[in-house]
Design a protein around this nucleic acid. Structure first.
Length: 294
DNA sequence: ATAGGCGCCTGCTGGC
DNA sequence: TGCCAGCAGGCGCCTA
């Protein structure tokens, strides 16, 4: 689910409520997430105070005393929320962290179990994990030189590049499509064929769309709620995502849906024409059929 | 090395 | 009404 804006919203919501609290007990379900629960490290979290709550890409990091790090990924359907301790457990709850004071619990719920929970015994080990995964920079920290280099060095289309966490950390299917629409670039355009202006427009669109989505507390489609159970609002501002057949907010033409990089991809064929390099006279219709076909 | 396809899970929706 | 295929916001492994 959760892409950068949703994860950022969860972190902002949880931070003031978690920092300074101590984890007094942990319970995990018998179902494994992406990896099985480890009896080795779960005890490391108990009795320790939470010193910081932060985000890196789509990862949520709970920093604990003594340089301990508890790291969660929400996958597609994960929810990390505080609940009153007496509140009934929702189905698919996989982790319960009791907190000192006893009135609230941190619970992790994940229907599809694509989520993931990890432990690192030091900041250094955590950083090594990100390094090994080759997790890319935060989209807000990227300069135009890095961005142009990344686009130039791959044979993939822009949609695939935006989804690659090694290029930018935190973008998923929704915000990739929304950013490409805002930049008025066809998602199937080859990254290396992007002009300087297109590259610049896309980089700016990415940060604008992400910032706007964070301001609206993320997007709720089905499962997503923030750290206190509230839904986001940005889904009301989707301009292309999930809107196949509906009018483009810019030109009123129908939004199209195609499959790219294995994912549903929404765009406006009129506002995001695909022109082959040096063939701008060719009609956008012709060039699209050529690029999208088999 | 890199790009594309598949599998992991469960739940919901739409078409027959 | 019921059944089944297809689809869903992510990622990692495998193959070519």
């Amino acid at each position: 689910m959760p892409e950068l804006p949703e994860v950022e919203t969860v972190v902002r919501e949880l931070r003031p409520q978690l920092v300074g609290r101590r984890i007094t007990a942990l319970e995990v379900s018998r179902h494994r997430l992406r990896r099985p629960w480890s009896a080795d490290w779960l005890p490391q979290l108990i009795g320790r105070r939470i010193t910081a709550v932060r985000r890196r890409g789509k990862w949520i990091i709970l920093e604990l005393a003594d340089d301990q790090h508890f790291v969660l990924h929400l996958g597609m359907t994960g929810q990390l929320r505080l609940h009153p301790a007496l509140e009934q457990l929702a189905a698919h709850t996989h982790l319960i962290a009791r907190l000192d004071g006893g009135r609230k619990q941190l619970r992790f719920r994940d229907v599809r179990r694509f989520g993931c929970a990890l432990w690192f015994g030091s900041r250094k080990l955590l950083e090594e994990f990100f390094k090994e995964a080759r997790l890319g920079p935060e989209p807000f920290a990227v300069d135009s030189r890095y961005w142009r280099q990344q686009l130039a060095r791959t044979k993939r289309c822009l949609k695939a590049v935006l989804l690659d966490q090694r290029v930018l950390a935190g973008i998923g299917n929704i915000y990739a499509d929304e950013a490409l629409f805002q930049a008025r670039i066809h998602p199937a355009k080859l990254a290396k064929d992007s002009s300087g202006a297109e590259s610049a427009r896309l980089r700016q669109a990415v940060t604008q769309v992400l910032n706007r989505a964070i301001a609206r507390r993320g997007s709720s489609i089905r499962d997503y709620v923030d750290g206190s159970g509230r839904q986001g609002e940005y889904q009301k501002e989707f301009r292309v995502y999930g809107r196949a057949g509906q009018p483009c907010p810019r030109c009123r033409g129908p939004i199209e849906r195609i499959r790219l990089a294995g994912r549903s991809t929404y765009f406006c064929p009129r506002c995001q024409p695909l022109r082959l390099k040096k063939e701008s006279a060719r009609s956008s219709d012709t060039s699209q059929k050529r690029a999208i076909g088999p």
